[in-house]
Design a protein around this nucleic acid. Structure first.
Lengths: 174, 174
DNA sequence: TCAGGGTTGTCAAACGTTCAACTACATGAC
DNA sequence: GTCATGTAGTTGAACGTTTGACAACCCTGA
């Protein structure tokens, strides 16, 4: 990289970045820990279950699910395979495209999600929202949106979001 | 969990939480991707190198390093072993405590860090700080501090921070 | 000097992710 | 029709990380 062109972080930015980093570590280890401990669900699986639970017929094409989960196809494929073993998800052939597969949340899977949700919500509340004023909550939303959207980030080729960037999720989750 | 006691997230909180989640995914995949691609350094290793580079004599006791990295002992032990293979870190016997080991950043390791830093800083800037006003930067710092510190999080037993809670890192990083 | 309590670090097994084929199907041009 | 090209999803192996059991060690007090 061109040395003289390097735009280093300012002191304030540096400080914010470090705080953000440690906050993230603490936050996610708490949230994932709770989910794992109380419900035996890895955080990643939980997100998949949530996406499915919100979809029409609680079912989604594999590729759509991958996109919604910001996940690669193969990664998702393995994850769904494991969810299938637990009996939480089932795979069906797609009626309109014979290449495709549809993942559907089973009743058992839905029940597992319903059982896990309260504890998860409580944890997110304790780790985050109990600590913030309502003004800070909206600041957090604005900041997150700025980071999540906008000009594609150089350095990732996430097959940059045809529909992910304008998505505005505001249904239930925790 | 007691059903009636569940404190669900409000719509605003829900929205903020989801935005935060996707922002995180995008941000970290960009930052980690850059580091991996341009410098072949996993993000976790980078943090370790930074901690060491800031320590006296560029050396730190294993346990102190683990604490500074919010990392478990065994996790750190593995990481240092791999850094040692690359010739970036060396392990020495601790002179004052014969139980202990000291990890020290080698000159080669320091050079690797110096080489990686500009690209990393640039990426963090693009992913985060170019997108935020300076007011938002300080909001982010305050919010992160609120999440990172304060009352111990129920749900984790992080052997709750004798010294981690009051730590206030504001040296260099990116 | 010897035990008990606590800490420090290592090792091996379990788990999850990534990578690189590979199958199967769809689509458009000729 | 059929050929080339692109898309959907799966699979297995290599790789890295995390976990828990274990061994080595220090320090205090009798």
């Amino acid at each position: 990289m061109a040395e003289s062109t390097t735009r280093w972080l300012t002191g304030e930015e540096e400080r914010a970045w470090r705080l953000f980093l440690t906050a993230n570590q603490i936050l996610f280890s708490a949230v994932e820990g709770q989910l794992q401990r109380d419900s035996d669900i890895p955080h990643g699986y939980y997100e998949i279950l949530v996406r499915l639970s919100e979809a029409d017929g609680r079912a989604l094409r594999m590729s759509q699910l991958a996109e919604a989960s910001t996940s690669s196809k193969s990664r998702l494929s393995h994850a769904v395979a494991r969810l299938e073993e637990r009996g939480w998800v089932e795979r069906l052939d797609c009626p309109t495209d014979r290449r495709g597969q549809v993942a559907r949340l089973t009743d058992v899977g839905y029940a597992a999600l319903e059982a896990a949700a309260p504890g998860h919500a409580e944890q997110v509340r304790r780790s985050v929202f109990d600590r913030l004023t309502s003004e800070q909550v909206s600041q957090l939303a604005v900041i997150s949106a700025a980071i999540a959207t906008g000009p594609r980030l150089p350095g990732v080729d996430v097959t940059t979001c045809p529909s992910a960037c304008d998505a505005e999720p505001d249904e239930l989750d925790a």
